[in-house]
Design a protein around this nucleic acid. Structure first.
Length: 587
DNA sequence: GCCGTTTTCGGCCCGACTGTTTTCAGTCG
């Protein structure tokens, strides 16, 4: 089993234990274990299992190490099989209905024999759920509503979709009287590739009008909770949006808390404890003494001199950790040693490669794309239309590509645009690893992106060999969307990413960070290690229209999550340096 | 089940909101 599959089993064990009413801390240990396994490299996991050093990893003890090893080597786990048999499969689905936790799910099963969503719906319709102790009419109605909406509500949303939904709400909140500070938190602020819900935090003096404004926004479909300092709504798109209101002196603590991630927060609280402090959304207060964290924070509130996250981190002896890095993957250790990298920024991007025009499946002409790139302040634009085998995308024949090279040459010569256009292609990697164009033609281009667009279902070893073979061909500049995933739509194809990374480094090939919001491929989780090994990336919008050229900004978010600096990103180089680099690469 | 510069046992975050209660349990984040 690979690490993703193992992590899924550990997570499911956690869920099953929850349904059995097990010790909550044991459940948390399995969930934490799953996250730790997911964060390890595939190679590292294998090596540790072989060397028996799995227990050295924080969060994995004797029991988890044994179970992970069994899963990795045999692909099965007796403990899990027995556990799964003892819990009806339908209960897990019932647990996903909002308002139903482990306790309620168990009650439903024990008292009414409910172990599927269908039975639950029938019981609600018959009114027998409302008659249970601890349940009532409203709960029953909420469950029915939850069953009706679960598809839309379960869904996560692309980062850009969430960002676009959040923008008008943020802007509106900022304009309200009495509002001092506003920020969106959670995975949106951490720039995760997908977002489950929106979290808005407001520093203010009078909550009532703000809550009133929030729940009456045009995009609001349903109000799910409305209190003094909190409100939750469901937007038309299915996105949930939460609002939190705090006094100004508490803002920074709640901002950090709601930004997360959970793992990061756990580690931060631990660090605070080591310093005799207690950290929470309420404040950073002495751990000793009577009273809750909230009471102490309220008592100290006006006296605290911490107003920014920089100050909050400094109080714990840490350099400022950008939100993108707060995943509990070593950022606190690095911040303690002042070893956090200076992350690449949107403004560092000087030009973009891998863009399409109407010559293949783009929506805008060469000139329109160039004008749009210039309007974005970019110094250069790389065209990379599809090659002949991508028939569905009107891939260019050799003749049409030669004609396009000439056309781009003429456009550059007119000096009509300050933005320079580089000639290129997105050349198909054929199923056997050969390229769709021969080396003679590729040599005439400024650069070549090679990508897989067919035979997605090849075995992992075959796919890996196929891609590596392509990287070894002359005149290959970059590898496009390494795994071919489409977020929330299509899984990555089976491929050994680490081996492809090593081959790219060996052949001096760049691996793109495809910045299309549905791709963000190669995934940010790989970049830190890959960059340390010497891999270079290019943040490519893969724009199929002028409106998509700015996708590189989304890609910068993913690059930042991957700990990348300006030096790791090829297209932060100015035009002259870029020309020189490409010329040297062509040899 | 994990962890330890309070180290092998006893913690492990905790408060808001809801719906059900009649003082609180369950869920959620």
């Amino acid at each position: 089993m690979n690490k993703t599959e193992i992590a899924a089993v550990l997570t499911e064990i956690g869920t099953l234990l929850e349904l059995k009413g097990e010790n909550p801390f044991k459940i948390r240990a399995y969930q934490a274990g799953a996250r730790v396994v997911e964060s390890l490299g595939e190679d590292e996991l294998t090596q540790r299992i072989e060397a028996g050093t799995l227990e050295e990893v924080k969060g994995i003890g004797e029991a988890l190490a044994q179970k992970i090893t069994e899963l990795h080597t045999t692909g099965r786990l007796e403990f899990f099989d027995k556990l799964a048999q003892s819990v009806p499969a339908g209960l897990i689905e019932i647990l996903r209905i909002p308002g139903i936790g482990a306790k309620k799910a168990r009650t439903l099963q024990e008292k009414l024999g409910i172990d599927t969503v269908a039975k639950l719906r029938a019981a609600c319709a018959a009114g027998s759920v409302a008659a249970l102790d601890g349940f009532g009419e409203k709960t029953q109605e909420k469950i029915l509503e939850g069953i009706r909406n679960r598809e839309a509500y379960d869904k996560r949303h692309l980062w850009l979709t969430a960002a676009e939904a959040a923008a008008p709400i943020l802007a509106g909140l900022r304009k309200l009287p009495g509002v001092k500070q506003v920020e969106s938190c959670g995975s949106l602020r951490r720039r995760m590739e997908t977002v489950g819900d929106l979290d808005f935090l407001v520093a203010m003096t009078d909550p009532a009008p703000i809550v009133g404004w929030f729940v009456t926004q045009p995009a609001v479909k349903e109000i799910t909770a409305r209190g003094e300092t909190k409100a939750s709504v469901r937007l038309e798109s299915g996105l949930q949006a939460d609002l939190r209101l705090v006094p100004p002196e508490q803002f920074v603590f709640t901002l950090h808390h709601l930004t997360g991630s959970k793992d990061h927060n756990v580690q931060m609280r631990h660090r605070a404890q080591q310093r005799g402090l207690s950290m929470s959304e309420w404040g950073l207060v002495p751990a000793a003494g009577e009273g809750t964290a909230k009471e102490k924070a309220e008592h100290l509130g006006r006296k605290t001199d911490i107003r920014t996250e920089e100050q909050l981190f400094r109080k714990l002896g840490l350099a400022h950790i950008p939100p993108e890095l707060r995943e509990g993957l070593g950022e606190i250790e690095a911040a303690a040693e002042d070893a956090l990298p200076p992350l690449v920024e949107e403004g560092d991007i000087r030009g973009v490669f891998h863009n399409h025009t109407t010559a293949s499946d783009g929506h805008n002409t060469l000139e329109e794309m160039t004008a749009a790139a210039q309007a974005l302040g970019l110094e250069y634009l790389g065209i990379a239309d599809h090659s002949k085998s991508s028939v569905q995308a009107r891939g260019l024949s050799e003749e049409r590509l030669v004609a396009q090279i000439a056309e781009i040459g003429r456009l550059n010569a007119t000096k009509k645009f300050k933005c320079h256009v580089f000639t290129g292609t997105e050349c198909d990697i054929l199923p056997d690893g050969k390229l769709d164009f021969d080396a003679g033609l590729l040599a005439q281009l400024d650069y070549t992106v090679v990508s897989v667009h067919s035979s997605f279902r090849q075995e992992s070893a075959v796919m890996t060999k196929r891609i590596i073979r392509a990287l070894e061909q002359p005149h290959v500049t970059m590898l496009g969307h390494l795994t071919g995933r489409l977020l929330l739509e299509r899984e990555a194809y089976a491929v050994e990413v680490d081996k492809v990374i090593d081959a790219a480094i060996a052949n001096g090939v760049v691996i793109e960070l495809n910045a299309n919001p549905s791709r963000l491929d190669l995934d940010w989780r790989h970049w830190r290690k890959a960059a340390e090994k010497g891999l270079l990336t290019s943040i490519n919008p893969d724009a199929h229209g002028t409106d998509q050229l700015a996708y590189h900004k989304v890609g910068v978010g993913a690059a930042r999550k991957g700990w990348l600096t300006k030096d790791h990103v090829l297209n932060t180089r100015p035009l002259a340096a870029m020309k020189k680099w490409l010329a040297a690469r062509r040899g």
